[in-house]
């Protein structure tokens, strides 16, 4: 068994497909190449491809890790060049390396994610943006002072469960180096050990502000990086590749 780890980016034109759609897209693209995909066992064998963390609908990304297994040896160069012609515009593999077949799965390493949220500037009306910038900063401050932010998870058959997700917000601040734009940097816990979705965060922010124009749908969300933990320090997952 051979294993390739890769990094990919997703731009606006493909931001609106779900995680499952993205997986299916990768698999179909790989099937169109001549690469010797490895399949799982069982009645319904499927290619062994995983992405480190699902990308939410509407979110673009620049450094998303994924991994895939092959039956025969495939070089990273071959992987990238064969896949290049089969990927639609908007989804691009930017890096690949060979990986030990039995090193830990990428998905199990994910600890946190860094997002950039940019408020869509409508009419390029600077004073409007200034105003919204102020409101955003104030609401952000209030939100971060809270000890508890409750996320209600509704399961189909079980009772709803309530989780305090405040501890999952590691850092949230306005990026002031962006001219007139309103941009937030959000470092949020993510992965199998618990996390908070950036969309939920923005919804809470909008609620806090009471302003419709800060509605979650008014932000462009971009995932910049995923992190793993080395000792107590968060390190970019892409550095391991």
């Amino acid at each position: 068994m051979y294993r390739i780890k890769f990094l990919f980016s997703r731009s606006r034109s493909l931001a609106y497909i779900s995680h499952l759609d993205t997986l299916r897209l990768f698999i179909r693209a790989l099937r169109r190449t001549d690469l010797p995909l490895a399949f799982s066992q069982g009645f319904n064998p499927h290619p062994r491809l995983t992405l480190a963390l699902p990308l939410p609908l509407g979110v673009t990304a620049s450094n998303e890790p994924g991994e895939v297994y092959f039956e025969a040896e495939v070089s990273p160069e071959q992987f990238i060049s064969e896949l290049l012609y089969q990927m639609p515009e908007g989804l691009q593999v930017i890096k690949a390396i060979e990986a030990e077949p039995d090193s830990p799965a990428l998905a199990a390493l994910v600890e946190a994610a860094m997002y950039r949220a940019e408020l869509r500037s409508f009419e390029k009306n600077e004073s409007l943006n200034d105003n919204l910038g102020d409101i955003t900063e104030k609401s952000l401050e209030k939100l971060m002072q809270k000890n508890e932010i409750v996320f209600t998870k509704s399961a189909k058959k079980k009772k709803d469960s309530h989780i305090n997700v405040r501890p999952y917000i590691i850092e949230a601040k306005r990026d002031t180096q962006t001219g007139g734009l309103v941009v937030l940097k959000l470092l949020l816990k993510a992965g199998s050990r618990g996390g908070i979705s950036p969309v939920f965060f923005l919804e809470q922010l909008a609620l806090e502000s009471g302003d419709e124009s800060l509605n979650a749908a008014c932000w462009n969300l971009h995932r910049e990086c995923l992190y793993y933990k080395k000792g107590d320090i968060l390190k970019p997952l892409s550095e391991r590749m």
């Binding site: 034109s13 493909l14 609106y16 497909i17 779900s18 759609d21 897209l25 179909r28 693209a29 609908l57 509407g58 639609p88 515009e89 908007g90 749908a217 008014c218």
Partner: peptide, 16 residues
């Protein structure tokens, strides 16, 4: 509009 609707991928048009 796409950022506000369900299943925006219905309206994309850049499929393979």
């Amino acid at each position: 509009v796409l950022s506000r609707v369900q299943k925006p991928a219905r309206y994309l048009g850049n499929e393979w």
